[in-house]
């Protein structure tokens, strides 16, 4: 564990908590892509199957349980409890365009052709693009509430901080996982445009609004 990894994890944790609290307290999931949330649930479940096979640490297990739990709580709030506030019309990204290529890629490029390893690899590939329906939704509506922007910023920062963690681990521990690194770069790059808008607008107290 190093400071970059810990910051990344805390940023990730903050993101999922912000999202659940935002939906719960405003009693609304307007502006949130249910499709991205479904993809994240798939990511967590397929990646954290090792919860039942490998024990790493109490920290590791607790975080995994929280991520899976928060993800399912979000889906329950969006598709059941506050269903009426879910903005279907703007959440029109076709997730099969992300699922099919990531499944195929995981079957082709993995470290070991075992069920757990292929599912882990699939979850890494899928996570790198899982935010696209959400970014697509923001671009369709042309704006995002500031709390949604904070959520996106925390969620995007997490993989960026992991990149620093991987650089550190490469030098300090001679440890690297190429699949995670390349996917992490892709994932972080997808947020760049958003980061720019967040820093230039949201942090200056303005609403995140895309140029017309």
């Amino acid at each position: 564990m190093n400071i970059f990894r810990l910051s990344g994890d805390l940023s990730h944790l903050l993101a999922v908590i912000i999202l659940v609290l935002k939906i719960w307290t405003t009693r609304s999931c307007a502006g949130i892509s249910g499709k991205s949330q479904i993809l994240f649930a798939i990511v967590y479940v397929t990646r954290y199957l090792d919860l039942v096979t490998t024990f790493v640490s109490v920290y590791n297990t607790s975080m995994k349980v929280i991520f899976i739990g928060a993800s399912f709580a979000t889906i329950y709030l969006m598709y059941s409890k506050f269903k009426a506030t879910y903005d279907h019309n703007h959440d029109s990204f076709r997730i099969e365009f992300l699922l099919a290529p990531t499944v195929i890629l995981a079957l082709l490029i993995n470290q070991k052709f075992t069920v757990l390893e292929v599912l882990w690899t699939f979850s890494i590939y899928l996570e790198s693009v899982a935010i696209l329906p959400q970014l697509f939704m923001v671009s369709k509506t042309g704006e995002a509430e500031s709390i949604t922007s904070h959520y996106l910023f925390a969620l995007g920062s997490y993989r960026g901080l992991y990149l620093l963690n991987w650089i550190y681990r490469y030098y300090a521990e001679d440890h690297y996982e190429l699949i995670a690194i390349v996917s992490g770069i892709v994932q972080t790059v997808l947020y760049c445009d958003f980061f720019y808008l967040y820093i230039t607008k949201v942090l200056k107290g303005k609403k995140l609004q895309l140029p017309a």
């Binding site: 990730h12 990646r47 590791n60 991520f67 070991k112 440890h175 690297y176 996982e177 190429l178 995670a180």
Partner: peptide, 10 residues
């Protein structure tokens, strides 16, 4: 190593 069996990250 690149063929590390346990993925210790989240």
């Amino acid at each position: 190593s690149i063929f590390n069996d346990s993925h210790d990250e989240l």
